[in-house]
Simulated scan of single mutants.
Amino acid sequence: MQQSLISERNASKAKTQKIFDELDALTNVDEHLQFAGNIIQRVEIPNIVRDEIKQRINHIQKRRTDPNLYLAVIGEFSSGKSTFINALLRDELLKTSVLPTTAAATKLRYGSNLEVEVRLKGTKPGIFKTNGNSKKITVPWLPGVKGINNREFIHILTAKDEVAKDVVELTITHPAPFLGNGIVIIDTPGTNATNSLHGTVTSKVVENEADTAIVIVPATIPLSQSLASFLSSSLGPFLHRCVFVITRFDQIRQREQSQLLNDLRSRLVEQLGIKPPILYTCSAQVVIDDISGEEEVQPHLIVWKERFEQLESLLINRLCRERSLAISENVLRLLTRLLEQLDGQLRSQWEDWLLVQ
């Protein structure tokens, strides 16, 4: 399957290269970045604004040279978000939980071995790294981290509240074929947490890092009011970059599936103004059950394995298409912010000049 996904990605990149070239020509990204850099050197603007613009320019330049494709996964607690990511990895790596834990995004990128890099705050802040051979990880100041392996360490960092609260940034390398396509999955905090920081982190990931964002919607709870409110208030400007994956679809009776999709599509149009909403259906749990062997997959459910593989191919194609658009949007936001600041600065100088006349 890995070779097939790589071949499809290469074919998609070839088809979209012309679009990328035309987009770069249309937006003149390099010229705009150079213009922004020249302006902040010549015009008197507040240092805090100057530093912000410099950081954004550096971020865009770094992103343009980064060959990876970034896929954010968004969902409420108990929506099946972790199960979906585990299915992409073909590994029960992330622990499913109904409770809010870390407010940090978790990045999963390709590596030949399972390894962890975590940046911590708290009484002993800093970066802690493991390697593929780490079998007796011990961090004396972290509860429960004594003589454990990488998998257990990941579970504690992401699902044990007294540890997760101090996680600032978490990166996991994993040998999953899906990640081997140059894809970085960003697991965002659950959106229905009482901690407002969860929503802030998620919106920043979609705005600044993700090429495409998957919104997980369980078929058993199609578009809860809390999820709709979050999408509208926090992700409104970026909804065009989102695709909606309806999980647990195997739990819906076949005669009811079409109606459910039609109703959900209508609600996305009416409540969020998405035209047209992109919907995919899947059953990630069937994929996990097939891998683990703990639950026998009934013959009538095997089709969901095949549909999940098709979904993976569709996601890779979309990531290739959206990358250039996401970078261009960042440039346009940078220029808008810069021009707004320049406008305010010039107005202030004009008013000061009038006062001395």
Rank of each mutant, 00 (worst) to 15 (best):
K124C: 04
N150T: 07
A87D: 01
A72C: 08
T106Y: 07
I127K: 08
E92T: 07
V145E: 11
L89M: 11
L94A: 08
V145I: 12
R151D: 04
P100Y: 11
I148N: 11
I137T: 12
A72K: 00
N86P: 07
E152T: 12
E76S: 15
I85E: 05
S78A: 14
A104N: 04
T96Q: 06
T101H: 13
T96F: 05
N150L: 04
Y110N: 10
K124A: 08
L94S: 04
R119D: 05
K124S: 13
S112M: 08
V139P: 00
L94W: 02
A87E: 06
P125R: 02
S82T: 15
K129C: 11
N150P: 06
S79C: 09
N131Q: 11
K146Q: 12
K136A: 15
G126V: 11
G126H: 09
V116R: 01
N86W: 01
R119M: 08
K107G: 00
L108T: 03
A87V: 03
E152Q: 15
L142A: 10
K129R: 15
R119V: 10
I154D: 03
L108G: 02
A72I: 05
L120D: 06
F128S: 05
N131I: 06
E76H: 08
G75D: 03
I127S: 11
L93T: 14
V116E: 09
K95S: 13
T83C: 09
A104S: 14
T101Q: 12
K135M: 15
G144Q: 10
R119H: 10
V139F: 09
S97K: 02
V98I: 08
F153N: 01
S97I: 03
K135R: 14
F77H: 09
P143I: 07
V118I: 13
K81P: 00
V118Y: 01
P140L: 07
A103H: 01
V118L: 04
V98R: 13
T123M: 12
G75R: 00
K107H: 09
K95Q: 14
V98W: 05
T102F: 11
F84Q: 02
V139G: 05
S79L: 10
P100N: 09
F153L: 14
G126F: 06
N149M: 10
I127N: 07
K129F: 03
S97M: 02
K124V: 15
R90C: 08
I74T: 13
N149D: 15
